[in-house]
Design a protein around this nucleic acid. Sequence first.
DNA 1: CAGATGTCAGAAATACTGATATGG
DNA 2: CCCATATCAGTAGTTCTGACATCT
Lengths: 147, 147
Amino acid sequence: MSQAPSWDPVEASVGYALKQAQSALHQAMDEALRPLGLTVAQYVCLELLGRSPGLTNAGLARSAFVTRQSMNLVLRGLQRRGLLSRPAVAQRGRALPSRLTRDGARALRDATEAVRVVEERMLAPLGAASRASLRECLAACAAALTG
Amino acid sequence: MSQAPSWDPVEASVGYALKQAQSALHQAMDEALRPLGLTVAQYVCLELLGRSPGLTNAGLARSAFVTRQSMNLVLRGLQRRGLLSRPAVAQRGRALPSRLTRDGARALRDATEAVRVVEERMLAPLGAASRASLRECLAACAAALTG
DNA sequence: CAGATGTCAGAAATACTGATATGG
DNA sequence: CCCATATCAGTAGTTCTGACATCT
């Protein structure tokens, strides 16, 4: 699995380029996070909780674009490793808000740095203006499909 | 699963926007292809064979960013449905080049149109210049990570 | 009642790993 | 020998679907 595709990338659609870039990023993140003992899904969960403490399983699943079932397994794994804590019983409703523990915050710090390096490598060919434009165009595309 | 994420999208990284757009596109393509009895993976396989007749399983897997095992299952399913044909024995080497059948070409025509509509909806907010820039930036990002 | 949440279970598709064999 | 290809087997993680119960 090392030979380049024979298909002319010039004819590639935006959708194909989108999948290509996302696949490459996922693989690069996976390789960067493996030494830290984290999967991409686990990192995303920690990152979301770092930015929005108290998110519930359903909220995390939506933000990470995975199912509630998958995120539930991620949460249990991280909780078992002591990287996050959830109340045993719901305070109100059925929501069980998760929060990072001390160890979880430390693991997130290292993982964030590793991912930052990967993203910087990905964006190296682009200037500041192109980066902002890329992010805005991607957000607009997503909004056009979901809205 | 219908409430919008509470996380501020302005702080989102390019990587997050990339995943967001790719996830939205995949879901939209899945919905558009379902009435045609095709999965996204099956459509990608047909599209690649339509552009490059004679591609092998390994080549298709690379171009579709999936494993050979997964692509092999897709190929068998499409072959069983009579949408493509593969020689029973290899002519040279171990390669088994696949080609679309008459039915496969017809199915591809409908699927391509359905996906074209989806992609047009995704790119509707963008002008021609932005679309070209987006595609080039994505290709550059992928190349920066894999190269 | 509608909607959001958490949970459980089964089926399906996919990926990863390792191994074998063939051919250039 | 090195590499690409095809294939098989086992393991694991993910998705999908449907269902049920609880709480606002």
